[in-house]
Design a protein around this nucleic acid. Sequence first.
DNA 1: CCAAAAGTGTTTGCTCTACACCCATGG
DNA 2: CCATGGGTGTAGAGCAAACACTTTTGG
Lengths: 208, 208
Amino acid sequence: MNDLRLEVRVVLFTLQAEALQVLLLPDSSGWKLPEAPARAEETLEESALHALQGKFARDEIYLEQLYTYGGEIFPDQPGLVNVIYFALTPLRPSLPQAREFSAQHLPPLCAGHEEIIAYALRRLRYKLEYSAAGFELLPEEFTLTQLQHTYEIILGEKLDKRNFRRRILQAGVIEETARRRSGEGRPARLYRYRPDAVAEVKTRRLFP
Amino acid sequence: MNDLRLEVRVVLFTLQAEALQVLLLPDSSGWKLPEAPARAEETLEESALHALQGKFARDEIYLEQLYTYGGEIFPDQPGLVNVIYFALTPLRPSLPQAREFSAQHLPPLCAGHEEIIAYALRRLRYKLEYSAAGFELLPEEFTLTQLQHTYEIILGEKLDKRNFRRRILQAGVIEETARRRSGEGRPARLYRYRPDAVAEVKTRRLFP
DNA sequence: CCAAAAGTGTTTGCTCTACACCCATGG
DNA sequence: CCATGGGTGTAGAGCAAACACTTTTGG
């Protein structure tokens, strides 16, 4: 009866080499998402941070609960329940053994993981469409071109520069800093997240 | 360490007496949401149906996983983890001991339950705004006026009849039947859910 | 024929979309 | 002064919002 095992797993996305990456660990039956057992003395979110082996402080990572899977996805492991978290970070994760794989080209995965990652990706795309969450994958200060690239990589389509800028600024989630970044060409203004902002943009309601 | 207890709880909404009702059970420390332990040999959704004491078949109820709460909401019960489901049904639930309360006027609740119900309510409202889920609270065949009333009760605001009808039909989730319902006034055409329809309406995307 | 509820279109304003050129800097 | 990426505005189309009268039935 109580042979239940409750684990917390994390789908950690990062941006590297112009691609969206997922962090995976090797296991006997394929690659797997980092996990930790849920513990009575901590919150599920804390367990999620443990799954990443304590490499991330709470404010270095965006964490959001995704879904809890039970028997429907692990029919071969009765009693295994997984609370999945979805995470974004601008940092380079360096867990021992772990590797990052492009979300487009995943290696062979453990049972059920394909579905979990696919769902996390759908949620990420959906999130970008109605929020400004993309900056969670970028350093504290970033240019609008960088942010637009992030959106293009994740959504897999080109966006119009002027429309992108207008809307992302209208959403009020990011603000400009006084600083600029020089490189080739005209220096770009740097922006940062406004911690006081509501991260979600109102979408058009079906019934006003 | 493994003194973890995994329970599934259900926030069951129904429509009665022109109000949105929540099903609750009495407990020593206040009213509580119906719950069942998660079991290794069943899915979480099956456990959710058990929480309702087997009174509902899977197709008599709309069930959706809401959130999994751990230590953050039950600090006084370390190790208690609750997977919450959110449910809609047109039926009159008749669990022994249980009572239904208007979502506006909840009785004193057990610890953490207030937050859970508030979240379920937010999700329900949000769902109605971008989907046609309201019919899940109505009998198989219903009139557009009934459906509009449902929306008005849940959203707590009057809606425009013509705009409501245009959009709900445009969404393509319900279809008319050949039948009509007579009462006072002109008989109303009956509608039903289209099982082949995609239940979610596309909303305007932030980045097209 | 009266009461009660069902059903139906149009105009106006706003928001989204598509689109091309000038600007600032470094080398 | 040239190459490189940064930055900016507008006109047209499509969608949403507001709004009032006619139709059908039962009593």
